[in-house]
Structure formats: C-alpha cells, structure tokens
C-alpha cells in the first residue's frame, strides 16, 4: 500500500507528541511512577480522541492508501483504546497518591466533575457505536448522536485537562492542545457542514431506475451539467444522499458502485430494498437528485495487479462490487481468470444472471460462474445449500493453492468463509473482503 507507512508514522507522532513535550518541559517531578503513568494515560487518551476526528472525516489524504474499510474500523478500535486509557487515567492517579476521594468524592473541583461526566459519555458513545445494530438503532439516528456526543466529549476533556493538568502549564503543550482543538473544530465543521453544503451545490441527476429483481433496483446517475463524472476504481463505493419526494427520507448512506469506470458519462448503484431507508429505493424517480461523495474503498482487482487468477465469492447483493470489477475486466479485456461463486436464496434473487452467464463465454476475462442456491426450486439443477467446507474445497480446487480471493457477503458468511479458507490452506494475505456495512 503506497504511502501508508508515512500516514501511520504521522498518526503515531501526533499521539506521542504530548508525551515528548511533557518529558522535555517537565523532566522530573516528585510524584510516584504510578501517578505519572496515570498522567501519561490521560495525555495519550486526549491525543487519541483528537485523532478520532481526523480518522472519521473521510479525508482523501488519510483514507486513500488504506480505504475506509480499514480507517473506520481503526477509528472504532482507537475509540475503545482511548476509553480504556481514560478509565485507567483516574485509577492510576488515585492509586499513585491522589487517593480514592478523586474517584468517589463529591467535594471536588469543577474541572474534575467535567471528567466524571465525560468518561461515562465516552463509554456510552463507544458501547453504542460498537453495538448499534444489535441495539436496533438506525444508522442515521446513531450518526446524529455520534456527531453530538463526540465533540461534546472532546470539549469536556479539553476543559478538564486544561484546568487540571499540571503539565498544561507549559506553553508548548498549551500550544499543541489549542492547535489540536482548533484542528478538530475545523475538520468536524468541514466534514459535517462545509463539504455537504459544497457537494449539494452540484448534485448528480438520476437518469434511470431499473428493477433488477423483485427487491433490487439499479439507479443510474449522470454528473451535473458541464462537469465530468468522478474517477473511480471498480469495486469502490459512494456516499449518497437522495433528494426525492417530500415524504421520502433525506439520509446519507454508502452504496457500492456497480458500473464499470470505463463508462465515462454515468455510474450506477444497485441497491436491495431491505432496511428502513433502502425499503424506499423503489420509489426513486428519474429526475430526482443525489448528492454524491465518492469514491472510497479499495475492494478492487486493480489493487492486486499480480493476481492473474481470482476467486470472487458473493452472497446476494454482495455481487455489486464484484460485478463492477467484472464489467471493468470485460471493458478493458483484462487477462485474468476468475471463478465466481454466487450464493443466493432462489433463482429469482440472482441479480445480473443473464449478464454474468453471457460474460462466462468470453476469453478476457476468462470467467467461470457457479450459482449456489440455499432455497432452490424443483427445476434447479445447479449447486444447492450453504457454501460449506466441502463445496469450497470442491469448487475452488487448484485455486486454493495460489488464487486471490475477494469476498463480499453478510458478516456471518464472511467470518465462516474466512475460517474455512484458512483451514483449506488459503492464508489471510490472499483474502480480501468487504462487509455490506462499514
């Protein structure tokens, strides 16, 4: 991944800079080691919280070498790490000499109260973000709450550390603290307000709404008049805000781009009506507008230039990034051999069946398609059941030894497939996957 190490180094430098400044400006003090460690955890935790804004702001410079498939889960993990550090911060201070009144006392300074309020808020924020789906919270509602809670926590932690931190008397650390806060405010405003407003000034237009199966629709977008469509790699995705009728929700969601970048004038997304928002996708009309923020992701065969043989495994609507890859291979005559294992419930659920079967007769790419149905009709003569170890072993055959695997399925299916593929001798380094949701 080009340039990735420099980004990681810059991020680490940002996290560790407060510790370096602390050591340089206050080399020694009479406090205990445990107390000093508690302080360090506090400084580190604050720096990570500020870094969270940078990770979440969808900045091209930050995201490009990794893809949001890595930066967003990394943002989640760093949120957990920051929460653990900020739990240990008061515990170590108390153990190191401040005593238990720091934790349980009520007669404490107002800036300690700020920390006592911000820590539960942070824990709630992290817990809800990790368990959103199982708690039944809608994505849009969670996003709104996250956008309020995150900055509130950062502001409270800033005020707490500014007033409570003995090290914050040093001017270099004060400059860094104010600089980080200013950067956070700037990035948050840009991400949540300025960029959405800027993008909404030149929306894309929906020029076709096509029903693929009873539950799946393809929307075709054309760029604003006089503008070129954005450039993208096959398999990437876009953030989309549909501006439709008054009664239809205006929410931003991410959808895979299902078309090939070789088509210079349009792009498409193929969407299954399943969740609260996507259930309305069939009500989209030609002429509706769409605010587009794209492209993102690295789920593309172009990221694997040396992989001549590939195995694509799709579960249901997970075919969308893979059809984009296949269409691009077809349009450019890519010299690749691809085995596509496509799992669906019934024959009626198979999206792009005719197109896939038509592509299977070509030389470049050399495509073999195997449909697998979990609830087949009586007339079905192909593979049936779940993609288990026996099927993967039999269908993949020699591919297991050398091919690169690209998987796009629901999370439980991905976990099962990765485990089985590992058991069959496919190292994780040859498996690339994308969940339906980030």
């Amino acid at each position: 991944m080009p340039s990735a190490p420099s980004r990681i180094f810059a991020y680490l430098a940002l996290l560790l800079l407060p510790l370096v400044i602390m050591v340089v400006t206050h080399p020694f003090n009479p406090d205990t080691f445990i107390y000093n460690l508690g302080r360090c955890f506090g400084l580190l935790g604050f720096a990570i919280l500020m870094g969270q804004v940078i990770l979440a702001a969808r900045l091209r410079w930050v995201e490009k070498p990794f893809g949001l498939n890595i930066t967003f889960p990394f943002h989640r993990r760093m949120g957990v790490f920051a929460a653990l550090l900020l739990i240990m911060h008061p515990l170590f201070l108390a153990l190191g000499g401040a005593g238990w009144p720091l934790l349980i006392g009520l007669r404490i300074d107002w800036f300690i109260w700020l920390a006592k309020v911000s820590l539960p808020l942070l824990l709630i924020n992290v817990f809800v973000s990790l368990r959103r789906a199982s708690l039944g919270i809608k994505f849009e509602k969670w996003r709104q709450c996250h956008g309020l809670l995150g900055p509130t926590i950062i502001l409270l932690v800033f005020l707490h550390s500014w007033n409570a931190g003995a090290d914050l008397t040093a001017v270099p650390l004060q400059v860094l603290w104010v600089g980080l806060l200013a950067l956070g405010v700037l990035l948050f405003s840009y991400h949540r307000l300025i960029r959405p407003w800027w993008l909404s000034r030149s929306p894309y237009r929906i020029v076709e709404v096509r029903q693929e199966t009873p539950a799946v629709w393809t929307l075709r977008f054309s760029p604003p008049p006089g503008e070129k469509r954005f450039d993208f790699m096959p398999g990437q995705f876009q953030f989309l805000t549909l501006l439709r009728g008054k009664d239809l929700p205006v929410e931003e969601h991410h959808f895979t781009i299902s078309s090939s970048p070789a088509d210079p004038d349009f792009h498409t997304s193929t969407i299954k009506a399943s969740g609260d928002f996507t259930a309305t996708i069939g009500q989209t009309r030609v002429g509706d507008l769409a605010v587009v923020h794209a492209p993102f992701g690295r789920f593309s065969y172009l990221v694997h230039p040396n992989a001549r043989e590939l195995v694509f495994i799709a579960g249901g609507i997970g075919i969308t990034p893979l059809i984009s890859n296949l269409r691009h291979m077809r349009d450019t005559g890519a010299d690749r051999r691809v085995l596509l294992l496509f799992s669906n419930k019934s024959e009626a659920d198979i999206v792009f069946k005719e197109e896939l079967d038509g592509m299977a007769g070509r030389e470049k790419p050399h495509l073999q398609v195997v449909h697998i149905l979990t609830q087949p009709g009586s007339a079905w003569k192909g593979e049936t059941g779940r993609l288990d170890r026996e099927k993967l072993s039999r269908l993949c055959g020699a591919h297991l030894a050398h091919s690169t695997f690209l998987l796009c399925c629901p999370p439980p299916m991905i976990q099962s497939l990765v485990t089985i593929l590992n058991d069959l001798g496919v190292p994780i380094s040859r498996i690339s996957y994308e969940y339906f949701s980030l």
Partner: peptide, 30 residues
Amino acid sequence: MEFLYLNRVTGLVILSSLIAALAAALLRTY
C-alpha cells in the same frame, strides 16, 4: 488481507503508545 493489515496497524499503534507512556512515566519519576 485487510483484517491482517488492520490488526498489524492497531497492534503497532497500541504497543508503541503504551511503551511511550511507560517510558515517559519512568523518565519523569527516576
């Protein structure tokens, strides 16, 4: 591939941060 990379980066950042915090606390105390 992504999972492996994510784990490595997360491990590197967490480990480096904890080592740096320990080192900084040691330097200040002794």
